[in-house]
């Protein structure tokens, strides 16, 4: 029957087109994943191996298999305190980034006309273009007792008490919020920008006040962007070491700084590697626990 033959004859080219598309996709994706494999996966695997050795296998040193570095984490109160401090830092920095970043993104997406928006965006990404170390050291000059803030305050009111907060916990938060705020603004801006303005108009036309319209339409639809920003900020902050060390001084001992010490000062690579993997495990655990909460608005906003 010719009728039956037609789909069969057509199926072959369709299958070939599908295969070609698959090859094309592999060709496009391949280089990136090969690069990631060589530069990230291999060194990480080496670190994972190190974390189970007594000493880093450099030169002629004899390395043996051990779990003592992982055991140390659970045996010593010290590490648990540090983990808690790092998590708290992560929560605090992320909280302030949301509190400052989301309204900024909302204003940029809704109320700032085109040309101004570009200029303001430039100011937001400016921190990205400066060296991180320079950025942090500039903060020390601003935040130290008798620094720029104090001078400014005393210029207005000579009796002003010192506002220097260098080498305190708030100084670390200030420095980290400054570094990571652009991520929050950009991810929130992108998801706010993608919301059709007519949706908010529809809400108003249905009798919702501007505040209700924001709460029931704009906020839920932009939540995915905010959550991406939260993950992008929270994860690196709990492993951060430079800002805590330089701005926090003695207050700045975090899991990140201790890990750094193992590599650069104590030269105990296996312990540093083990602590890094424990940190990674904590991050993955937190994301897994938050997934149901994070996943719901993502699914809802995409209309599925």
């Amino acid at each position: 029957m010719t009728v039956g033959a037609v789909p069969a004859a057509r199926a072959a080219p369709v299958a070939r087109a599908g295969r070609e598309r698959g090859l094309a996709a592999a060709g496009l994706i391949g280089p990136a994943y090969l690069w990631l494999l060589l530069t990230i996966f291999l060194p990480l695997s080496a670190m994972l191996l190190f974390s189970f050795l007594t000493v880093a296998p450099f030169g002629a040193r004899e390395a043996e298999f051990t779990l003592k570095h992982y055991a140390a984490f659970f045996q010593k109160e010290f590490y648990r305190t540090l983990t808690w401090r790092s998590l708290r830092l992560g929560f605090d920095v992320t909280f302030w980034c949301v509190l400052i970043g989301y309204p900024t993104a909302l204003a940029l997406a809704r109320h700032v006309p085109g040309r101004w928006r570009e200029a303001l965006f430039l100011l937001i990404v400016l921190p990205f273009w400066s060296n991180a170390l320079v950025r942090v050291f500039s903060w020390t000059m601003v935040l130290r007792g008798g620094g720029l803030i104090d001078q400014a305050a005393q210029a207005v009111w000579p009796e002003a008490p010192s506002l220097g907060i260098l080498f305190t916990y708030p100084a670390i938060v200030v420095g980290l919020v400054h570094s990571f705020l652009p991520y929050m603004i950009l991810t929130c801006y992108l998801s706010l920008q993608a919301i059709e303005p007519s949706l908010e108009e529809a809400a108003l036309s249905l009798g919702a006040s501007p505040l209700t319209s924001f709460r029931r339409v704009t906020l839920p639809l932009s939540l995915p962007g905010m959550l991406v920003g939260v993950v992008l900020i929270f994860v690196p902050v709990i492993g951060s070491f430079m800002e805590p060390r330089i701005l926090g001084g003695p207050e700045g001992i975090m899991l990140g700084t201790v890990i750094e010490d193992q590599f650069t000062v104590v030269f105990n690579w296996p312990l540093g590697a083990a602590l890094s993997y424990i940190l990674l495990a904590i991050v993955l655990l937190l994301i897994a626990l938050a997934a149901p909460i994070l996943g719901r608005p993502l699914a809802a906003a995409s209309g599925r």
């Binding site: 059709e196 007519s198 108009e201 529809a202 809400a203 339409v217 639809l221 809802a300 906003a301």
Partner: peptide, 9 residues
């Protein structure tokens, strides 16, 4: 509205 402006979520 022209594009209906239904709330996708």
């Amino acid at each position: 509205f022209q594009n209906y402006a239904l709330f996708p979520h």
